[in-house]
Structures are given as C-alpha cells and as structure tokens.
Design a protein around this nucleic acid. Sequence first.
DNA 1: AATACTATGTCAAAAAATTAACAAATAGAG
DNA 2: CTCTATTTGTTAATTTTTTGACATAGTATT
Lengths: 219, 219
Amino acid sequence: MHRYKNISAPVIKRLPRYYRFLGELRDKGVIRISSRELSDKMGFTASQIRQDLNCFGGFGQQGYGYPVESLYNEIGHILGLDHTYNAILIGAGNLGKAVAMHMSFEKRGFRLTAIFDNDPKKIGTVIRDISVSDLDDLEQFCSENKTDAAIFCVPKNAAHSIADRLYRVGVKNFWNFSHYDLSVHYDDIIVENVHLNDSLMILCYKISDANDIPDDTTA
Amino acid sequence: MHRYKNISAPVIKRLPRYYRFLGELRDKGVIRISSRELSDKMGFTASQIRQDLNCFGGFGQQGYGYPVESLYNEIGHILGLDHTYNAILIGAGNLGKAVAMHMSFEKRGFRLTAIFDNDPKKIGTVIRDISVSDLDDLEQFCSENKTDAAIFCVPKNAAHSIADRLYRVGVKNFWNFSHYDLSVHYDDIIVENVHLNDSLMILCYKISDANDIPDDTTA
DNA sequence: AATACTATGTCAAAAAATTAACAAATAGAG
DNA sequence: CTCTATTTGTTAATTTTTTGACATAGTATT
C-alpha cells in the first residue's frame, strides 16, 4: 500500500463530502452512479468529480459509472478512516464536552483515550465513560500511552504553553478549536483548525453583503 | 456606504484571520505594521496581504505601512461586525449548548434571541439567560420577532424539515452545524457550514499521509 | 453478434489565485 | 532641505484550479 502524495488541498477538502454523499447513496441501496448524476446531487461539475477521483485511481468503468459501495469504501480508505489513532482532549469546558459527546470518533479513524483539564471542579467528572484527568498528569500519560493527536479546546491564553508541552512529549497532530494559530509557531506539526469565530464572522460578511442594496453610483 | 461586491471567496476567508492578528497587535499597543512584518507573523506573503487589503481600499501609506488600530476597525466594518443580526439557535443538545455558551455573538455581529428544541426535558431549561422554547412555537416566534439567521445544531434526519419551516417563514441565513447540505436544496439562502466530521476526517487524512513512509517503487 | 449509447479517463483550455516586480510616494536621518 | 530607506498600490507573470472536449472502452438491447 502506498499513499497518495502531492494531492492538492482543494481535492482533499472535497473528499469528506464525497464520502458523505456516497454513504447516503449506499444507505439508500443505490448500486451505481455516474459522475453526472453525482454532480447534480453534490453541486460539483461532473468533470471535477472525475478528475478528483482519478487522483487516487480509476474507480469507475466506462459506460457504467462508479460502483457506490466500493467507491465509498475506497474513499474511506484514502481518508485513512480504517486507522485507529489515539487522541486526547485538552479542555473539558462547554466546547470540549460537546466535542467529546457529539463526535463518532471511531467512525473517523480515532479513539478518545483521555480528557484533561486544570479546573479541580472538572477533574474526576466523567464524560462519555472517560474520567477527566488533571492537566498536570499530561506528560506522564503521554509517555505511558501512545498518543497520536490532541484535540485542543482550551482558551487562547492557555494555548501556547499547553501546545509547547504536547510538542515536547511528541504530540504533533492537532485538531485545534482554540483561537490560536498553532501552525505559525511550529513547522513540523499537522493542524486542522476549527475556528468557530472565523466562521461566524464569514457568515456576518455574507449576510451584510447580500442585504446591502448596491448604491446608485450617480447619486 | 457601499459594500464590496465580487470579492473572491479566498479573500473573504482570510479576513477573520487578519482581524484576529490585528486585534492582537492592537492589544499589544502596536501602532503601525508593514505588510512584510505582518507576513512574517501570519504566514501569508506580503504581496498577498497588500492585494487582499487593496480589494477594500488603500488603508496603508507608502514608506510607513498600515495603521494597526484603524485597519482593525476597517476590517471589522468590512466583515459587518457592527451589525446586530438576531439569531436563533435550533437544537439544545451538547453541541447547541456549547455554541450558545461559548460564542461571543455580540462581538461578531449577532445577538442570540431564542433557543428551540423538541425534547420536553430541555424545553424550559435556561442556557445563557435564554429559556429553551418548544420547537412547535418556531413559526410564531419568527413572525413576532425579526429573525435574521438560524444556528442549525440538529441531527441530520431532522435537518430537512426544520430547514423547510425556517425557509417558509423567511429565515434564509444559516450557520449550519448539521451533517446536511442545505445549499443543495435551496439556491437563495446563505449558508456557512461547520462540518466537524469533515474536519476530523481531513485531520485523519493528513496524519495518515504524513505517517506513511513512501514505498520504494522498485521493491 | 452487431450496433447504438453511455460514461470514464485524460488531455487541453480557460479561469482564478498567488506571487513577483516595480514605479510612485512618504518617512526619517543628516 | 535633500537624500536615502521603506513600503505601498498596482500591473504583470506564474502557478494552481476548474472546466471543457473527446477518444476509448464497456453496457445493454435487439
């Protein structure tokens, strides 16, 4: 097995969407689908779909289309969902708790192995079968338990020092919910950001842009 | 005042990041900054920064750079953060609760006016000074209270019908956390998606890609 | 078995986004 | 006040991404 290098970021970002739509089709019992049909459903062009999929191999058959089930599985494999990466969650506040409760990690290639917080009131409470640990025990835990990734749900001012500690014990993959740009400070880490504030501001921009009636420039 | 049309999506996506970094600089008391310095901090090229900002006007001064404070305010204004859009939250589960508790809506151009759920156990509970309402009262609330946007924290299977109801009462701006592609079903709505599953899968891809040692093709 | 039709994989063209280059303008030092 | 250092705004070049076109291969029907 070899992985696919030099796949462009736009293509990678579209993969989960393919996965989602193909999963729906599979659940509906659809056996095959053409790039044109998929294009109608997903809002991409058929050409783009063919080109995207072709980055990873020729999954389709001319005159027939793509077999839904096996393409779904292929994309899952390309995404690496058949791995089981151990992830720890840092920060058991509202957001951290929600992420822990809400996500189906197992279906996305991960397993949640520990949750850390520095608030004595939270330490010892149980979230999804996991007892919240003291943040002071972070290094020890990571040295005793293989830890592939950290889910970062901490406030901005705490982010830097905790990121440092994780980096030093070799945790270099982050799912980052904090308003802090990890990637600016280290160059050999992998970060996937979820910047909720940014997203909300973009919505604000779009609404403002749409609501505003363009001025009559001659007025 | 006229708004800026035909700004490309990549530029818009970078605006919140500029806003964040400029806010930090302002808080540190930095008065002015050049595109080169900002480029070092943010990881964009200086050229891109100049070109991005220039979409909205000439905020800089040759030989001097950009005034931090006023540029920060300008970008806030461009983003529309000086609006106060009324937003309702649909779904008071873990994620909905976390979003309600965690976000500073007022700083992002919004005000949270109501929270809805269909679970009798949740109706009447209070989240951030707002009592959760019965989802059955959705239409009545929207007809009596100006509602600019809906924050969509509902499970996939409920998404379609609720989106329909909102659309019918004229709510057409969505901050969508559900695993459901709203934009595919309506073409005159504004949607900003937060697809946590997609994001986690992309992290999985990146980790898998980096971990895999490229095969010796001759083996 | 032959034929008409469908739909992929791929190559080429077009569009979009990023980066580079530079002239014009200002700051600041001497 | 002049001269040099900067640094923008802007145009041009490059790179990346998307879209279009089509030959080839396979399906399905008669």
